[in-house]
């Protein structure tokens, strides 16, 4: 029981950086110019044709990003997990080196590549590859791929090789072994990889802003815009705060769903 003491700093941290900010978001959502009011909260919440439409599209984009990341990352992680530790360590390092660079800088580099470099390379400098859903997806996948590879690699490399050998001894072919042994055992890695990609993908606003040329609105951009056009005497954060609450609830639901699939909390890779 004495060990509880070590949890206190974490509790203080949680109160300061999670509970207090959440309280302020709720406070500003129902407060316009120091007056308690539900009008803005309610009108934002019921604005289906704008806010909910954008939210739905952001969920779709985030799901696409997550799916593409999973499809690309799983084979990579699987191959890495079967390599010698030293080689695998070096190769996975290569995947992480770009992450040492600032996120916004990387996104701007992609803008330059898509807007100027590739059109120049194919000899059509007037063409542009920015401002489309494809370009936004491409950069989102690039930015979040390492978050998918790492938990998958961790889980896959921890799978006891003797289980695979046993499966082969009992007559299962490699395909059957993969689907009946490896895949089920790697579920915790898949689940935490999905959470780590889906959550930042649904909340992003830099990527649609930079790569989308300002004509590709995702939910994060809506929140950003709501705060940038705050009106009234004291500042009116109600719309932005309400939009944030909706997003927090969405993230919460997706995390709960993910946790439901990941009942085996003891295994590695669990992040949230």
């Amino acid at each position: 029981m004495k060990r509880k003491v070590f949890a206190y700093p974490y509790i203080v941290w949680m109160i300061l950086f999670i509970v207090v900010p959440m309280f302020f978001i709720f406070y500003y959502a129902v407060n316009v110019g120091g007056q308690f009011t539900l009008t803005k909260f309610w009108s934002t919440l019921t604005d289906v044709k704008n806010n909910w439409l954008v939210l739905w599209n952001s969920i779709v984009i985030a799901l696409k990003t997550t799916a593409i990341c999973l499809i690309i990352a799983y084979p990579i992680a699987y191959i890495l997990s079967n390599m010698k530790k030293s080689v695998a360590g070096f190769i996975s390092l290569l995947f992480f080196v770009p992450m040492w660079m600032n996120f916004i800088l990387r996104t701007y580099s992609w803008y330059a590549i898509l807007e100027y470099f590739i059109p120049g390379l194919i000899g059509k400098p007037e063409v542009s590859f920015t401002g489309t859903e494809f370009s936004v997806l491409l950069v989102l996948v690039y930015d979040f791929l390492p978050f998918m590879i790492l938990p998958l690699y961790n889980t896959l490399s921890k799978i006891d090789k003797s289980l695979i050998e046993a499966s082969r001894d009992l007559g299962a072919n490699p395909v059957k072994t993969f689907f009946r042994v490896v895949l089920p055992l790697s579920v915790p890695g898949i689940v935490s990889g999905i959470t780590m990609v889906f959550v930042p993908a649904i909340t992003t606003f830099t990527v649609p802003f930079i790569i989308g040329n300002g004509v590709f609105t995702l939910y994060g951009s809506k929140i950003d815009e709501a705060f940038h056009q705050a009106t009234g005497v004291v500042g009116d954060y109600a719309v932005g705060s309400t939009l944030s609450i909706i997003l927090v609830i969405c993230v919460l639901i997706s995390t709960l769903i993910m946790n439901y699939f990941d009942k085996d909390k003891e295994s590695g890779g669990q992040v949230l």
């Binding site: 044709k49 704008n50 806010n51 439409l53 954008v54 599209n57 859903e133 936004v136 649609p208 989308g212 300002g214 004509v215 590709f216 609105t217 995702l218 951009s221 809506k222 815009e225 709501a226 056009q229 009106t231």
Partner: peptide, 16 residues
């Protein structure tokens, strides 16, 4: 506010 909500609707239509 009328300008702002018009703008918000305009922005929501982008890419969606």
């Amino acid at each position: 506010d009328v300008f702002n909500s018009a703008w918000s609707e305009y922005k929501s239509k982008m890419g969606n």
